[in-house]
Simulated assay, not measured.
Amino acid sequence: MAMLEVKNIGISFGGLKAVDNFSLTLEENELSGLIGPNGAGKTTIFNLLTGVYRPDKGSIRLDGRELTGKSIIEINQAGIARTFQNIRLFSNLSVLDNVKAGLHNHYPYTTLEGILRLPRFRAQEKEMNRRATELLEVFHLEQFADTRAKNLPYGSQRKLEIARALATEPKLLLLDEPAAGMNPNETAELMETIQLVQKRFHMTILLIEHDMKLVSGICERLTVLNFGKVLKQGETQEVLHDPEVVKAYLGE
């Protein structure tokens, strides 16, 4: 069974078809890319997958479960997490607390238990601290646990956002332009980080990215979107050398 099955989804805004008959299948533990010119509809696809928008038509299934029309919270709880092109961290919270924010659905306690610091609250907090620290260690951020997120270097903020997304224990991780604003050294480190996440967590990953070096270096398959429609899907090198893709996107 595929991890993600998207069939013929579409959405229009004011009569304009932003996404039209988009279909995509991702197998478990696949690392795939979604590319295309600015305005092609890539982020709209992510918003449809995560419940920000509700598709006008089509279906979205994750690990066999129908998610079409579900809320953002329901979709996240079902196993889809994302990062954003513009980093969205809790900038004044510590690095550790940012990761813990992603863990709360898995370690529930009542408001009263928290206020009175009852035994279950203390036990849950201890376990959350342990789990959050483990995730930070994966990204070599544990030494910054008490640092405010806004004080991290840019590349480390990107990694922290991925760590927080992983804290929700997703089945599918959506990365929206993770290399945006990075220098070449940071991008190279990010490539290694994404591959590590895929292997260590057996994670299915779909990423939007304009950095073709990153895309060609880590993505197994690509989907090219143009004017809201799929232009090409297939193995990465085959897609990148397709004449229609070169003409529409690479501009060569």
Rank of each mutant, 00 (worst) to 15 (best):
G64D: 08
H104W: 03
G102C: 07
L240K: 08
L24P: 02
E192H: 15
T147R: 11
L34Q: 06
Y107H: 13
A149C: 06
A188D: 13
G33Y: 12
I9S: 03
N226Y: 03
L103Y: 12
L136E: 12
T68F: 13
T44R: 08
M182R: 07
F46Q: 12
A101H: 03
E161K: 15
L112C: 01
R148S: 09
V230Y: 05
Q77M: 04
P153V: 12
F227S: 13
S12V: 00
Q143V: 01
Q233A: 00
R61P: 02
F90Y: 12
R221T: 01
E220R: 02
V215W: 02
E113I: 00
E28I: 02
A145P: 01
E252N: 02
G228F: 08
A81G: 09
L240C: 11
L166A: 10
E66I: 12
T83V: 11
L26G: 00
I80Y: 00
Q237K: 14
A18Y: 07
P55V: 10
D211R: 01
G102F: 06
Q195T: 14
T236E: 11
R120P: 06
I72Q: 15
E161P: 12
T110E: 04
A248S: 11
K150F: 13
G217V: 00
E125F: 08
E74R: 12
L172M: 05
C219E: 02
L16F: 14
G64N: 01
I11E: 04
G79V: 02
E244G: 09
M3W: 05
E30I: 03
A180V: 11
K42C: 12
V138H: 09
E169G: 11
F227W: 12
L175W: 13
P170H: 00
M1C: 04
L93M: 15
Q233H: 00
I194P: 03
Y109L: 01
M212W: 09
L206I: 00
L4E: 06
M1Y: 09
L172Q: 06
L231D: 07
E142C: 03
A165C: 06
V245N: 07
Q157L: 14
I75A: 08
G228W: 10
